[in-house]
Nucleic acid binder design. Structure first.
Length: 874
RNA sequence: GGGAGCUUAGCUCAGCUGGUUCAGAGCAUCUGCCUUACAAGCAGAGGGUCACAGGUUCGAACCCUGUAGCUCCCACCA
């Protein structure tokens, strides 16, 4: 026999099998006549590295696609990466800064060269890491959102939507990130509670000695005030309507307007209006035709229009202006105040609401089918509770600001003439042609392309279509689209999921995926989000080195129901590793029998029944397993599999068929055991691809490539013999009963025992052989009367006895029986009470009544037996 | 401010149609074992006012109402 170590070593197997899978192109998919099963990866940032969230997310995708592959579907998992416009650009800017290069010193072309260099250097690292966890992607199809074809599809969709009137250019209030110096969409703004101050500022009323006091959290915006506003119903200020006030420090004269937008209860009930720097003030400004003073530069410093503090940073000005207001006697008081401040998701800079000329997608009509098909479950969400927030968002959807003042990304295909006119077209030539039609004969050098790029999500919303070149070729996209499952985080439901659904209906008139599985957030043991700055995020690659990829996969999936956060603890991986080792040792045992096959040995009855039972058990678990998969109950599917292997197969089955020390094994039992083991390996494979493949090749010779477990057939549910399953339950209780007697009385396992049985039920006698085998019995004797002086226990109404051995504590035995008697009497009383309740008897269904009556009868007979036993002990 | 969800063993969570299998699982803990696959193991054991208070029902962890605590999402009170 070849020497097999007692500890499973993942390091020696994982790379070997991954290379094997790649070599035999087992993850490759081309359209054929099979049913397709498609998953597109949520593309990680091109320069990202694998973190625990990826580990969880991609393990689930791999699990789903591996099972589908085994089910004979044409399974395809498309990998790829996202250019992540703002995030990547920020990294490149940072890297250049470290080298002493400022972005503003570079030409667009030179900067993009650096960006591509960075992308090529770091891009794809994460894809290599995914291979370590066993991801069964079709790597030949790896896509990048800035691939040539993909780029083109993004541009074409922009042009298409523009031509349909769904994209427009307009001056709107947008969220401005002064650090990255770009516009942001509403979704890219994170609102956080910030302890700040509420400043009460005195504004002098013109031609009067009176002052009006206004509360503000942002005193620096005084520089942009063009009105003050009160509620028309507010008696305190009625006399001010139509008056003029003087803005402190800048001494600008501005009107007092009245609008019921103003809350009378907040602050002083008087609001200063800065239309250029606040969403609501902008709204008020439009309504009341106010002047707009844009007092801030792109980088958050004060502009010329601000008149004072020009060039100073907005936060420095806030401090300074408070001092100056105070010195000038304009500050009445200061209060502590908790308010919500918007931060940029990427740069964490405080976002400035700002009036700006940007490109928008009109979402009103586009969102309609996307809402409808989620609400009616054409697209199913797991867990379904997310439908609520989805609906909430969709019903209140706002137009989507898609232009970004960045260089890294898909450049907006709009061209401007010298007079400000623009044309949307793929190329400059086409733009010139469009201008010409409008009787604008611009020359080539007069026309410039829009310098801005598109929001990253404006490209990734096409992902399920564009990875198949769906904008240009029909064949592939028609076959693979719609995809089946999308596995992603709820955090990007609005950024990405919702918009993919929108794009799906807009461009394919069909859903992009049938099921969306939302994973939770991976947190540490204390429930904190894992982050680089906290240093509480383990490196998945390191974990896999310690526990094996299979171990970490199992660890991640053990406790992660859909939509629930995962409180990660390394002990979960340890459990995964231990499980792998358990499987490994089961394999070692079975393997050791290969050389012990003895054709002269007849198959023992205990093995016969073990095989019958194990097959039924397997099929019963398989039924549950399939159901769990269908409902995306991943951790439950894993737990069923775990118990199938550990409890049913290892603890019971293998013990039942294990030949006595030194004996051989009959051929049938060996062969059946291998078959069962193979089935178990198959259901293990999606969870633990490496160890299952390793053992798969050890238990039987396989053809190279086609013999891989990756493409072995997922077992179909066969016969489940419910009677055997029930009988097994009794059987296992008998075995446990005997073990308990041994243990409690210190009877060594080696000592053979006599088991006497007083039986009223019919049990397959094959199980008796198994009892003998497992309990190390001399024999089983059937008795009609209870023998004296014996240990005993009961299973249902059957009684089991083992004659007293030398040193027996009769008193202890007696008190045990008394305790059981007491319990049973109490139980009887409860059941009697139930059955004597007329209303229960009249209302409860027959089945429930029958059960209660049976309980009653069983309890009565059990009490009788216990009483008899007690008296016999005297 | 609006919406959603959660509260079951020390921890993480199941409990799907109110009733058989309803109080469960895994881990952890405790006890005993280096038994001829596995100490990364084996054999056992303990552990609960199902957040709280009412209600509906013959019957509630489950349905209803209220209370408390926690979480998430959305939203422009300066």
């Amino acid at each position: 026999m070849i020497e097999i170590p007692s500890k499973y070593d993942p390091a020696t197997t994982e790379d070997k099998w991954y290379a094997y899978w790649m070599q035999h192109k087992l993850f490759k998919s081309v359209p054929d006549n099979r049913e397709p099963f498609t998953i597109v990866i949520p593309p990680p940032n091109v320069t990202g590295v694998l973190h625990m969230g990826h580990m969880l997310n991609n393990t689930i995708q791999d699990l789903l696609v591996r099972r589908a592959r085994m089910q004979g579907k044409n399974a395809l998992w498309v990998p790829g990466t996202d250019h992540a416009s703002i995030a990547t650009e920020a990294k490149v800017v940072q890297k250049l800064r470290a080298e002493g290069i400022k972005k503003s010193d570079l030409s667009r072309e030179a900067f993009l060269e650096h960006a591509w260099e960075w992308t090529n250097k770091h891009g794809g690292i994460i894809l290599e890491q995914l291979k370590k966890l066993g991801a069964s992607c079709d790597w030949d199809r790896t896509r990048f959102t800035m691939d040539e074809k993909y780029y083109e599809s993004v541009i074409d969709s922009f042009i298409d939507l523009f031509q349909k009137g769904k994209i427009y250019r307009g001056e709107r209030m947008i969220n401005w990130d002064p650090a990255a110096q770009t516009a942001l969409s509403d979704e890219e703004v994170i609102h956080k509670d910030v302890a700040s101050k509420l400043y009460f500022v005195k504004y002098k009323i013109k031609d009067s000695d009176e002052f009006v006091i206004i509360a503000t959290t942002r005193p620096e915006t005084i520089l942009g005030d063009t009105a003050i506003c009160v509620n028309p119903k507010d008696d305190r200020y009625k006399h001010l309507h139509g008056k003029t006030v003087i803005v402190p420090l800048v001494n600008r004269e501005v009107p007092v307007i009245a609008d019921d937008y103003v809350e009378m209860e907040f602050g002083t009930g008087c609001l200063k209006v800065t239309p250029a720097h606040d969403m609501n003030d902008f709204m008020l400004g439009e309504k009341h035709k106010l002047k707009v003073i844009n007092m801030m530069n792109d980088n958050g410093t004060i502009s010329e229009a601000g008149e004072l503090y020009i060039g100073m940073d907005r936060f420095d000005v806030r401090k300074k202006i408070v001092e100056d207001l105070s010195a000038a006697g304009h500050l009445s008081k200061t209060e502590e105040h908790l308010n919500k401040v918007g931060f940029s998701e990427r740069s964490d800079a405080v976002v400035e609401p700002r009036l700006s000329l940007q490109w928008f997608v009109d979402m009103k009509d586009l969102s309609k089918p996307a809402l409808e098909h989620v609400m009616n479950d054409d697209i199913r969400f797991f867990p379904p509770k997310f439908k609520n927030s989805y609906r909430n968002w969709m019903e209140n959807i706002k137009d989507w600001c898609i232009s970004r003042q960045l260089w890294w990304g898909h450049r907006i295909p709009a061209w401007y003439g010298p007079d400000g006119a623009f044309a949307v077209a793929k190329t400059k030539e086409e733009a010139i042609a469009i201008f010409k039609k409008d009787n604008k004969g611009f020359r080539d050098e007069q026309i410039v392309q829009d310098p801005d790029v598109l929001d990253t999500w404006f490209s990734s919303w096409l992902w399920p279509i564009s990875v198949f070149d769906g904008f240009y070729t029909k064949e592939e996209v028609d076959y693979y689209y719609p995809t089946n499952d999308l596995v992603t985080a709820p955090e990007i439901m609005f950024f990405w999921v919702a918009r993919m659904i929108v794009a799906g209906y807009e461009y394919r008139n069909e859903l992009p995926f049938r099921n969306v599985y939302y994973t939770g957030i991976v947190r540490d043991k204390q429930g904190r989000k894992m982050s680089k700055s906290l240093g509480n995020s383990p490196d998945p690659i390191e974990l896999m080195k310690i526990y094996g990829a299979d171990g970490v996969r199992v660890g991640m999936l053990l406790s992660s129901p859909a939509g629930n956060d995962l409180l990660f603890d390394e002990s979960l991986c340890e459990q995964g590793r231990n499980f792998a080792n358990k499987i490994w040792n089961a394999f070692r045992l079975v393997k050791s029998w290969e050389e012990k096959i003895d054709t002269s040995i007849a198959q023992p009855d205990s093995s016969k029944i073990a095989i019958e039972w194990m097959n039924s058990k397997f099929n019963s678990v398989l039924t549950d397993l399939n159901d769990d998969y269908d409902k995306f109950r991943i951790s439950e599917a894993l737990m069923s599999t775990y118990k199938l292997v550990w409890d049913d197969f290892c603890a019971w089955y293998l013990e039942m068929v294990k030949p006595p020390f030194g004996s051989g094994i009959d051929k049938t039992t060996y062969e059946e055991t291998v078959k069962i083991f193979e089935n178990i390996l198959k259901v293990l494979h999606p969870f633990m691809p490496f160890i299952s493949e390793e053992i798969w090749h050890f238990v039987r010779e396989r053809e190279a490539g086609t013999g891989s477990i990756c493409i072995a057939t997922w077992p179909s549910v066969a016969k489940i013999d419910q009677q055997i399953l029930n009988q097994f339950n009794d059987f296992s209780e008998i075995v446990i009963g005997v073990r308990n007697i041994r243990k409690e009385n210190n009877i060594p396992n080696k000592e053979k025992l006599l088991l006497q049985v007083k039986r009223t039920t019919n049990t397959d006698t094959l199980f008796d052989a198994a009892i003998s085998h497992l309990c190390n019995l001399n024999s089983i004797e059937f008795v009609s009367e209870k023998p004296a002086n014996s240990f005993s226990f009961m299973i249902k109404s059957d009684e089991f006895f083992i004659p007293f051995t030398a040193n027996v504590d009769v008193a202890a035995e007696k008190s045990k029986l008394e305790e059981e008697l007491k319990y049973t009497e109490g139980f009887l009383k409860a059941v009697e009470g139930k059955l004597s309740n007329e209303r229960f008897v009249n209302n409860a269904p027959v089945q429930v009544l029958d059960v209660e009556r049976k309980k009653l009868a069983d309890a009565v007979s059990k009490i009788k037996i216990l009483e008899e036993k007690l008296s016999s002990l005297n």
